[in-house]
């Protein structure tokens, strides 16, 4: 057994935090991505403009810089809002965005932009005839989305989604720089204390590889599922 010199439990905690952070950010990113893709495809010029601005900014600025801006700026922005509430309506609340929430929001926000491109393409790839058929069956908008458009769209979105997930997972390592104790942060602290970089960094690297490898298997299974009813193509 490897001797982690007392850092074992903290490394495990860090791994758990990395995983939770990644999964929650993914959920937020998918939601934001669907929203931004919808906005881009909606007829509204304003929605289209806002969504385009959002994806352009995110794709032009490094994740780390965005993280610094959102992590500190986010709290200041929320405070300005609550201060206004206090002055205007005498409602005194303080919303504390803790580091973990800030991490989730930041990574979700960044990857929402990438997801929106994936979803936009996938929305467009669904044949309109399918939706017309759904309407002809008398399905409501939401039902038609859930039963018809979403499953059909997912088939096209999956490869991009999988790709984004892998990049997102690796991006979570950056939260160690802004002070969250994920597994990279614990490994870095341990490295500096013990001067054993390989002892701590390699298991953490293996942790990432384990998550990506399992994800790849899940993607394969999902792809098969959403491919049901379509002919095998090359």
């Amino acid at each position: 057994m490897i001797d982690f010199q007392g850092y074992g439990p903290r490394l495990l905690d860090g791994a758990l935090l990395t995983f939770e952070l990644a999964v929650l950010s993914l959920i937020l990113a998918v939601a934001l991505g669907l929203l931004a893709a919808s906005a881009k495809l909606s007829g509204s010029r304003l929605a289209h403009g806002v969504a385009t601005f959002y994806t352009t900014v995110v794709r032009g600025v490094p994740d780390l810089v965005l993280m610094m801006l959102l992590f500190y700026g986010g709290q200041i922005g929320v405070n300005m809002l609550t201060d206004q509430l206090y002055y205007a309506f005498d409602i005194d609340i303080f919303i504390n965005i803790n580091a973990f929430v800030a991490g989730v929001v930041t990574i979700g926000f960044i990857f929402g932009a990438y997801m929106s491109e994936t979803f936009r393409g996938a929305f467009l790839a669904v044949e309109e005839g399918q939706m017309e058929a759904a309407r002809a069956y008398g399905m409501s908008g939401w039902l038609a989305f859930r039963r018809i458009r979403f499953p059909l769209m997912m088939r096209h979105a999956l490869p991009g989604l999988g790709n984004n997930w892998m990049v997102l997972l690796k991006t979570t390592a950056l939260v160690s720089i802004i002070g969250l104790t994920d597994m990279v942060r614990v490994a870095a602290e341990a490295t500096k204390a013990t001067h054993e970089p390989f002892l701590f960094m390699i298991p953490v690297a293996l942790g990432y590889l384990a998550i990506t490898s399992v994800s790849e298997l899940v993607m394969l299974w999902l792809r098969k599922r959403y491919d049901t009813g379509f002919e095998e193509q090359d």
């Binding site: 990279v184 990432y208 590889l209």
Partner: peptide
Amino acid sequence: RGTPLLIQLYL
């Protein structure tokens, strides 16, 4: 490609 660049940099 499977591990964060940050870990590669630390190493």
